[in-house]
């Protein structure tokens, strides 16, 4: 009985605490909204918009968002590709991939064989129009990643990706090409990631193509959720972490958490 009493008291304390959090956050929200209003009316508009449009002719692209992403603030985009890669390498360091899903039936397989090529073609299209209309490397990469997800859901444990060796090259392609272009420009005296207007369009397209592949592969590989299966990454007793090898008395080939439909 004393147990339930202390439990109910703890629950009460929790309720009080979450009420306190809610009230203080409501105050925070109100204050932020008020200050946001003041900031909006501070007269900073049009902010960077006019300048960004004014400089657009020299960027090599006519879509202003692509101009920001791959020219004005290309360095941010480079680092963001590095963030995606870091997350994937972190996922790989946690262990090998779980086995895939059951092979799809005839209907799903038929649909997949239609949808996946369509996604890839659409991705290519988005990449190309990104120069002058909404689109670009991220949208295209996201479609490629989605194609990988569908392929894995349809039963391919590798999500349609190549073996580990090739996968590693594809993953680093984005940052590698980006950095090498930047350093190359620096070597020719233009400055890091400072494109000469004459070549800007083609350099941006080159970087975007590499980035699309890297993003697509990284997203699909993240969905696979571990080091790719294959002779290279076959876990040995020595490689396996203490977490799974040392603490499991009997080898269990299928971790309980994984989807096994």
């Amino acid at each position: 009985m004393s147990m339930s009493q202390s439990e109910s008291r703890a629950a009460e304390r929790n309720r009080d605490l979450s009420l306190l959090v809610a009230v203080s956050l409501a105050v925070l929200g109100a204050a932020l909204t008020w200050l946001y209003f003041i900031a909006l009316s501070a007269g900073a508009a049009p902010r960077l918009a006019d300048l960004a449009y004014e400089r657009l002719p020299g960027t090599g692209v006519s879509n202003p968002v692509t101009a920001v992403l791959l020219n004005y603030r290309a360095y941010d985009t480079l680092m963001e590709l590095a963030v995606l890669l870091a997350a994937l390498l972190g996922i790989w360091s946690l262990g090998p991939a779980a086995p895939g899903f059951q092979r799809s039936g005839a209907v799903l397989a038929g649909m997949v064989s239609w949808v996946v090529p369509l996604l890839i073609v659409t991705g290519g299209y988005l990449l190309w129009v990104g120069g002058y209309a909404p689109g670009g490397a991220f949208q295209a990469g996201a479609l490629l990643g989605a194609a990988g997800v569908i392929v894995r859901l349809a039963g391919d444990p590798r999500a349609g990706l190549p073996g580990e060796g090739a996968q590693r090259w594809l993953l680093v392609l984005g940052v590698l090409v980006f950095t090498l272009v930047g350093l190359g420009l620096m070597a020719f005296g233009a400055g890091f990631l400072t494109y000469p207007p004459k070549f800007a369009k083609w350099l941006i397209l080159l970087i975007e193509m590499a980035a699309t592949v890297a993003i697509g592969v990284a997203l699909a590989a993240a969905y696979v959720g571990g080091r790719p299966p294959g002779p290279e990454a076959q876990p040995t007793a020595e490689d396996e972490d203490a977490l799974t090898a040392a603490e499991t008395p009997t080898p269990d080939p299928t971790p309980a958490l994984r989807p096994q439909p």
């Binding site: 049009p46 902010r47 960077l48 918009a49 960004a52 449009y53 202003p64 968002v65 101009a67 920001v68 992403l69 004005y72 603030r73 941010d76 985009t77 963001e80 963030v83 995606l84 870091a86 997350a87 994937l88 991220f138 993003i215 997203l219 993240a222």
Partner: peptide, 20 residues
């Protein structure tokens, strides 16, 4: 007027970071 492209690009970058 067309929108300010800079915040749009920042959000695109932010989304990829959030996904990762």
């Amino acid at each position: 007027a067309p929108p300010d492209p800079v915040p749009h690009a920042l959000v695109l970058t932010g989304i990829v970071v959030a996904v990762s």
